[in-house]
């Protein structure tokens, strides 16, 4: 009987889904950003590592599996964990194609230990790149565009 109970418990542990956290449904608008460059400052200040100036580097980081964020108009960053049915947010194509775009997202918000995570159920709108900050910052980093003279 004891073995049966242990086997049953082990079976349940293997097959059952994990416990879900309690989230809050939100709609948020903002820019799809590369969170490493934004948080680390490794390529420059926060205004320079977004938008058209940073588009190519945002592609590199997204394809490289660095977490992609949604930078809301109030400065809040939401870490994107899923878009629709696509959970491949560590290097997947869905977020790659939205790099530096301004979007409106509907999803579930989870707050944990100082960070905000979002599971996006629907991208309500995608306005493409609206932050044309290359006019102020050029391309960031400078090597993101290969020098055609070399």
């Amino acid at each position: 009987m004891r073995h049966f109970t242990l086997s049953l418990l082990a079976g349940l542990a293997l097959s059952s889904p994990g416990l879900a956290a309690e989230g809050t449904r939100i709609q948020v608008s903002g820019e799809i950003i590369d969170t490493w460059c934004y948080y680390s400052g490794v390529m420059g200040g926060p205004d320079a590592v977004v938008g058209s100036a940073h588009h190519t580097c945002a592609l590199w980081c997204s394809a490289g599996g660095i977490p992609v964020g949604l930078l809301a108009e109030d400065g809040t960053v939401y870490m994107v964990l899923k878009v629709g049915d696509d959970t491949q947010t560590a290097g997947g194509d869905t977020l790659l194609r939205m790099a530096a775009h301004t979007v409106e997202a509907d999803g579930m918000l989870y707050e944990r230990d100082g960070l905000r995570y979002i599971v996006v159920s629907d991208v309500v709108s995608d306005l493409d790149i609206t932050n044309k900050n290359h006019e102020d910052y050029g391309n960031v980093p400078g090597f993101s565009i290969p020098d055609p003279n070399k």
């Binding site: 994990g18 599996g65 959970t87 491949q88 947010t89 944990r112 599971v119």
Partner: peptide, 21 residues
């Protein structure tokens, strides 16, 4: 696996390196 942690969707391989950890 962060998706598992928040939503309860928990593949045995944590998403094979394609999910955020």
């Amino acid at each position: 696996d962060l998706v598992c942690e928040f939503t309860g969707d928990c593949p045995a391989d944590c998403g094979a390196g394609k999910r955020q950890m």
